[in-house]
Design a protein around this nucleic acid. Structure first.
Length: 248
DNA sequence: CGGCCCTAATTT
DNA sequence: AAATTAGGGCCG
């Protein structure tokens, strides 16, 4: 399955020569709706839309499979600028001594199946300023739950990113990296009865609760961020969630 | 306990 | 820039 996917990616890449990078995401369930103004960056383990004003991704999407979760490769985090993104972009200098974590959108620990994927997950394309307790608390529990979903269901489609509630967000560092007010994360799993989904909205402050306490419908996140997530899924799949389906 | 989310300082 | 070392806290 993995090989087939890579083959399709190669075909799509070849077919898009001479066009925008954005042209090659067709058929990937995890990719949200986006327009031609966005800077779409593809990496082995995730696809992101990098925002050159906030210096954070607007969204990061990836598929996580049971095989990938079983990966055992280990490598320390090595944050660096993304060579595939044009300036301006964030760097380590912006986050150091800022009081904010360099928070992964696609987790480092989701990339243990590939050295390249691990390295690319540390690009600032995939990083936002996150509250320490939230990142190590509520957010991490959602990440761990997502890995259990992938392991149990075989695969899960994931898209997440920042939410800005203020017209003038806080910012950190010389490059003025914007500090999000909240984060969203949406999951979709394919079942014999079609897709089922759930999403989370977590404040970027002291948040250490369980995933369940942050669970919302995908629809409600779409309303907040003004973007269609999982555009290939039927509307009814995004309108509700049943927590009994997500107790992993 | 190990694994995971990190930090900072130091060395090469 | 990359690698190493040392440290903190929480969860399963």
């Amino acid at each position: 399955m993995k090989i087939l996917w890579i083959f399709c990616l190669l075909l799509a890449t070849c077919a898009s020569v001479g066009t925008q990078r954005a042209a090659s995401t067709a058929g990937q369930v995890e990719i949200p709706a986006y327009d031609a103004s966005e800077d779409i960056v593809r990496h082995l383990g995730y696809t992101a839309s990098y925002n050159h004003t906030t210096l954070c991704p607007d969204w990061v999407a990836w598929e996580l499979t049971a095989d990938e979760v079983a990966g055992t490769y280990e490598q320390g985090r090595q944050f660096s600028r993304d060579p595939d993104v044009d300036f301006p972009k964030a760097s380590r200098e912006d986050y150091s001594n800022s009081g904010w974590d360099k928070g992964h959108m696609a987790p480092h620990a989701d990339m243990k199946w590939s050295r390249q994927a691990m390295t690319e997950s540390d690009y600032f394309t995939n990083i936002c300023p996150q509250n320490k307790e939230m990142n190590a608390g509520a957010w991490r529990k959602i990440e761990e739950m997502t890995r259990r979903v992938a392991k149990h269901c075989g695969a899960v489609y994931v898209v997440c990113g920042p939410v800005y509630d203020s017209d003038e967000p806080r910012h950190i560092g010389p490059a003025c990296v914007h500090v999000p007010d909240r984060f969203f994360k949406a999951l979709a799993v394919s079942t014999s009865d079609g897709y089922r989904t759930v999403a989370f909205l977590v404040g970027n402050d002291y948040q250490v609760g369980t995933p369940r306490s942050y669970a919302v419908t995908v629809d409600s996140v779409e309303t907040v961020i003004g973007r269609n997530l999982f555009p290939s899924l039927p509307e009814e799949a995004e309108a509700v969630y049943n927590w009994n389906d997500w107790k992993y």
